[in-house]
Amino acid sequence: MEKFETLTGLVLPLDRANVDTDAIIAKQYLKSIKRTGFGPNLFDDWRYLDPGEPGMDHSQRRINPDFILNQPRYRGAQILLTRDNFGCGSSREHAPWALLDYGIRAVIAPSYADIFYNNSFKNGLLPIVLEREAVERLFRETEATPGYRLTVDLASQKVTTPSGMEFKFEIDAFRKHCLVNGLDDIGLTMQHVDEIKAYEGRRRKQAPWLFSE
């Protein structure tokens, strides 16, 4: 997993609440057996005017010029600014994969759905929670200022605006540790093999019907 330390990036404002994972990456693209290549299909139904299927040359499709992501001033955005309950719906990890593959490294919203939030950390995508008022202010500034960039510093847990205004954010110590160091969870858990085996030994005695072998 790629490390996350600091990031200064262009902000893409997606001004809607309850953006679900079906909208982030539509079902037809979940047929892939890879983790990569989802970027051209991020927000597919909103981004293109014609229906998309896997295997198409997406650069040849009709784009929806009204969708925010297609506006030239937001090209190359690395930070997605959005509203409450982002990532609701299914457990598909293809949602963070699609955001990352497109180039988004951090999301800022007042709240997230639990599974999406969790999946993001496993892939080096940082979901930042800020107060509604702060998010509202960032929306106003982003829309009013072409080329608006924010700086995210994970170590100090701060988002800084171009004018120097700072917003602190909270993050679990463990998640931060993994993200800063690009750590793989499985490797960490494997350090506790003896404890897992000891638990299984106890469990086999208490609830033997749970073990068929």
Binding site: R35, S90, S91, R92, E93, I115, N119, K122, N123, I186
Partner: peptide
Amino acid sequence: GIGTSEVE
């Protein structure tokens, strides 16, 4: 429900 990293 879990994501694919957690499946692994």
